[in-house]
Design a protein around this nucleic acid. Structure first.
Lengths: 136, 136
DNA sequence: ACGTATTTGTACGTATGTATC
DNA sequence: AGATACATACGTACAAATACG
């Protein structure tokens, strides 16, 4: 779908909306590799810079992962279950960039923070690999 | 601190690291307004584009909020407690951009997703305004 | 009420570096 | 080694929102 230059919406958002719709609609399946930035740019009639902004949006949303070879639709890795019990507290936040790289986390992935009852220590779990279950 | 051009680290990361250190160290307190992008650029001897990349990093981390008038250090809004019980499941993910705008959420803020036992409905809570407590 | 200055947002261009195939 | 594709970084220009006098 071409960019509508009369629209109130910026070009990069239109491109992002386009791609997102194809991803959540299943048209672009997990592990599918997106066309090169320059390819999309030419096809949509925008600059590569604009395409990069659109791709950055989807990356922040955790929908795609970008490497030096291109962007691919993210797949949910296997999910480990973390048990919590009475009195535990749970929060979530984004990791800092150094923290994210240290744990080999993709962009757009929050961390789950668990503070066990009676302690102040924080357990950190990448949110795309963990799910919390309330047991007992 | 000036940018080290002989470093292996990109300029925008050095600027981001600088600012982050001042934020988490308390030197830049909540509600403090950062200098204009063009000012930082001139001061650090880099282009405005590079400063914008650095600021984008901090925004993704949830450390700052940017408006048309500048970037300010984010403050934690008042936190509501959400109770969960046995069998409930908890996940966290980033909202999509449209979803984020609809709920007036800042960039860099994940959502907490709660699926109550026996249901498949998802309750969505902005993670910066909610904390989960395991009760009973 | 209105214009002006400030500041970020968008979009284009170019060039070069560097990792991967 | 060569081709491909993303990453970084510079530049320009104009638009649009906000705050201020």
């Amino acid at each position: 779908m071409p960019v509508d230059w009369s629209s109130f919406q910026p070009a990069y958002m239109q491109v992002a909306d386009d791609l997102r719709a194809k991803i959540v609609g299943g048209e672009l399946p997990p592990d599918y590799r997106l066309p090169a930035e320059s390819h999309i740019a030419q096809q949509e009639g925008v600059s590569r810079d604009t395409v990069r902004k659109a791709i950055a949006v989807l990356r922040r949303e955790g929908l795609i992962r970008t490497t030096r070879r291109g962007s691919v639709i993210r797949t949910r890795p296997e999910v480990k279950v973390v048990a919590v019990a009475r009195g535990d507290r749970i929060e979530s936040r984004m990791p800092t960039d150094p923290e994210r790289r240290e744990h080999d986390m993709d962009e757009g992935v929050p961390v789950l923070v668990i503070v066990r009852a009676g302690t102040e220590d924080e357990e950190i779990y990448p949110a795309d690999q963990h799910r919390i279950a309330v047991q007992l």
